[in-house]
């Protein structure tokens, strides 16, 4: 890895952070034994994707995409990823709500949210 690559990586560091968060979220879902933590892992994963989209639509030195005649001819950031991510947030919210409600009913059945104890009781 040369010096140029490191500079390129640092210039694009939101993407690096997004990838790291995504992997971390995936790891949390697959390895944590607590069901609530698994749901938090899903949330971390989704948030990393939101970061990725927003970073992809961002332009350095551009203003928010709200038309203002007083400003004149300026550069706006891309509004489409933000609109897409609004949908993504709604989807993530519904998945989280659904998962938590299932965990509540599992807790009513078994009295625990821990996978190892849950497996023992079966």
């Amino acid at each position: 890895m040369g010096k140029l690559d490191i500079i390129r990586l640092l210039n694009n560091f939101p993407f690096l952070i997004a990838i790291i968060l995504f992997s971390l979220g995936c790891l949390i879902v697959l390895t944590q034994r607590n069901l609530i933590k698994k749901v938090i892992g899903i949330n971390v994963m989704e948030t990393s994707i939101f970061l990725f989209f927003i970073a992809a639509g961002n332009i350095k030195g551009a203003v928010p995409p709200i038309y203002n005649p007083a400003q004149g001819d300026v550069l706006y950031v891309n509004p489409i990823p933000q609109a897409l991510i609004l949908t993504g947030i709604v989807v993530g919210f519904s998945v989280t709500a659904f998962a938590l409600s299932i965990i509540v009913s599992l807790y009513r059945f078994y009295g625990t949210v821990h996978v190892t104890e849950l497996m023992k009781m079966r």
Binding site: F52, V95, A99, I102
Partner: peptide
């Protein structure tokens, strides 16, 4: 209920991958 939780969590991971690919 147990099977659904498993299904939902894995489906959520799958959706994450798909959305990332779309990104």
């Amino acid at each position: 209920t147990e099977a659904t939780l498993k299904y939902l969590l894995l489906a959520a991971i799958g959706s994450g991958f798909i959305l990332f690919a779309i990104g």
